[in-house]
Amino acid sequence: MSGYCDSAPGHPVHASYHDTEYGFPVTDDKVLFERLALEIMQAGLSWEITLKKRPALFTAFEGFDPAIVARYGADDRARLLADAGIIRNRLKIDAIITNAGIICGMRDSHGSFVGWLDANHPLDKAAWVKLFKKTFRFTGGEIVGEFLMSTGYLPGAHRDDCPVQSKILTANPPWCR
């Protein structure tokens, strides 16, 4: 992601995400769910559009609490599809709602979403993609790769000479273990 390390610092939209979130390890299921949802929403669009809509998405999906989103029904789907502040794509919205239910199921099998990720770590990208496609909806190679890089499960979020990379290494992301 060397281009991101060149263009994001100082950028009004990308800087904060690049400097404080992208590539750092995540252990909170709500944050993991948000990151997966954002990657799904980004498919076919620019990351800048997705980041600009992030606050509205956070509100629309009630803080990305999987337990709340998993209970969404027809009225919630209609509300989301009518919300001009978010990315309104029925397939993406349906996938996010379905994936919330899957994440809730992981609480029984692995204690949490992070527990499931940790139980399957380490895998290479191809194996992660296969596992995600089997487990979740709307999760192709690019979505899975970016999700795992953004949450510290795969390397490659930053160049080695990017100042953020040393902070990430200090945080000991799963790909370093």
Rank of each mutant, 00 (worst) to 15 (best):
S2D: 14
S2E: 15
C5E: 10
D6Y: 13
D6W: 10
S7E: 14
P9I: 12
G10E: 11
G10S: 09
V13E: 05
S16M: 11
H18K: 11
D19E: 15
D19V: 04
E21H: 12
Y22D: 12
G23C: 11
T27W: 09
D29M: 10
K30V: 06
V31T: 15
V31R: 13
F33I: 03
F33D: 01
E34T: 02
E34C: 02
R35D: 10
R35I: 08
L36W: 02
L38Q: 02
E39D: 14
A43P: 01
G44A: 07
G44T: 07
W47V: 02
T50Y: 06
T50K: 06
T50N: 03
K52N: 14
K52V: 10
K53Y: 07
K53I: 11
P55A: 08
T59S: 14
F61Y: 07
F64D: 01
P66N: 08
A67R: 12
V69D: 03
A70N: 07
A70C: 10
A70Y: 01
Y72P: 02
Y72E: 03
G73L: 07
G73Y: 06
A74R: 14
D75E: 15
D76F: 05
R77F: 10
R79L: 12
R79M: 13
L80T: 05
L81R: 11
L81I: 06
L81C: 09
A82N: 14
D83C: 06
I86N: 05
I87G: 01
N89P: 01
I93Y: 09
I96M: 05
I96Y: 06
T98C: 13
G101N: 13
G101I: 08
I102W: 06
I103R: 00
C104V: 15
G105P: 04
R107A: 13
H110D: 07
H110K: 06
G111Y: 13
G111F: 06
G111P: 05
G115N: 07
W116S: 04
D118F: 00
A119F: 02
A119H: 12
N120D: 06
P122I: 10
L123W: 01
D124K: 08
K125H: 12
V129N: 08
L131R: 13
L131E: 09
L131V: 02
F132K: 00
F132R: 00
K133H: 03
T135A: 03
F136W: 08
R137N: 09
T139D: 00
G140V: 04
G140P: 07
I143L: 02
I143A: 06
I143K: 01
V144M: 01
V144N: 00
G145D: 13
G145F: 03
G145K: 11
E146S: 14
F147D: 01
L148R: 02
L148Y: 01
L148T: 04
S150W: 05
T151Q: 04
G152T: 05
Y153L: 03
L154D: 05
L154Q: 08
H158Q: 08
H158W: 11
H158C: 04
R159N: 11
D160A: 14
D161G: 07
D161S: 13
D161N: 13
C162L: 07
V164G: 04
V164Q: 09
V164I: 13
I168E: 03
I168L: 04
L169P: 00
P173D: 11
P174T: 11
